[in-house]
Design a protein around this nucleic acid. Sequence first.
DNA 1: ATATTTGTTAATGTAAGGTTAAAAGTAGGA
DNA 2: TCCTACTTTTAACCTTACATTAACAAATAT
Lengths: 233, 233
Amino acid sequence: MEEQKKKILLVEDDPNFGTVLKDYLMMNDYDVVHAKNGMEGFEKFKKGDFDLCILDVMMPYKDGFTLAKEIREKNTDIPIVFLTAKAMKEDVLKGYKVGADDYLNKPFDSEVLLMKIKAIIQRKATETISDSKQFEFKIGGFDLNSKLRFLRYNGGDPIKLSPKENELLRLLALHENDLMPRELALTKIWRDDNYFTSRSMDVYIAKLRKYLKLDDKVEILNIHGEGFRLVVN
Amino acid sequence: MEEQKKKILLVEDDPNFGTVLKDYLMMNDYDVVHAKNGMEGFEKFKKGDFDLCILDVMMPYKDGFTLAKEIREKNTDIPIVFLTAKAMKEDVLKGYKVGADDYLNKPFDSEVLLMKIKAIIQRKATETISDSKQFEFKIGGFDLNSKLRFLRYNGGDPIKLSPKENELLRLLALHENDLMPRELALTKIWRDDNYFTSRSMDVYIAKLRKYLKLDDKVEILNIHGEGFRLVVN
DNA sequence: ATATTTGTTAATGTAAGGTTAAAAGTAGGA
DNA sequence: TCCTACTTTTAACCTTACATTAACAAATAT
């Protein structure tokens, strides 16, 4: 099973502690982005699509609470955990007021931190019921359901698509009648652009063409050296 | 709209501490039921419809963890907070494994407790899309009663379901005809996502398929690498 | 012409899922 | 307490699904 790593934003100004914590989390199979202060933290937050934020409270320029407030303005759902050296009651209260999901006092037990992270992310996972509308496409006489990974022609039996077939067709559909650059598919789907992935992609184009033969109004054209076009006549 | 008081089940054997805490919570506008031990706690839990459980870990007859497990069997969603005198790491880890939402060391600051309670209840409130009341499902010719844990085909003899069978089928039913991600079932039901829990889940899928064979319009399809679909034709 | 890109089919290796049985863990009764 | 029935996990073995690579043919560009 292709397991997607959870992405954590870690904002911590102490370079030693920050690095150690980052490495520890990465060793435990999380994808970690480390920011050294509040400013940087916010910038990185806006760029990445995170599953959890771990914020140090005491930081220069912008403290953890202020950062948390800004993050909450952009995203009301993302879990936030605060780290703090002192167990000041006012701080804890303030943290919960800004919508903290949990609170950890340094030094803390790393195993406990892991469990908490797991619990928090799990909690969020159950919330996500998912919105399906952006996964359905009409391609000539075909219906592509990209979430359930099937292609159906004229209400007939659905053809099951493999993950790569599915993503490639979806990408083509997003660019219907237009150029879908080779490079785009390779970087987006294969996450690597070399001779072999490129040949692999050609194999998948052949597979898709076979499926799409059912409707002779639909075809995938090659634009030599550029990419492919999904055309519907 | 009239705001409904949130109902808390407090299970705490120390009479002094328990009473004080109960009074404090009631002063702060919560509806509190106080049980003096694990046994009583479970009885009261079954009777009332609570928004939160606060369980002492160290109790005679039945400790907090055991009680939590029983409660989780009846209700996978309700938030649980543990109280403990000692901050033993093993205890904390055990707590999160049973699905704790938070952890408090005695003596703790009452204001902090209030904030935590507020945060937790709020969290659940946003999660609850109102599927909380859904324990009865029609699946083709089947009726699933998820509260009483049985499945009946065309009004025939009910088939008793084990807790895991029941939860899994319920989760599939909640996503009828749609994808029920592997990860969702693992985090929600097994509370852990690894090779073994994943294989265990496959075993349960096989069991459910056997039950569902009675109606050939109902089937569980696999979406490779993603999860399962309960489809009704 | 010939080097490069693309079309297509087949072979291979690996991972995920299906199924059944045995082992381990639990709860409740005698 | 031990026993029994039941639930869940672990193991084993097999099948299916998938992605990559190889091989060769055809098209296209320089």
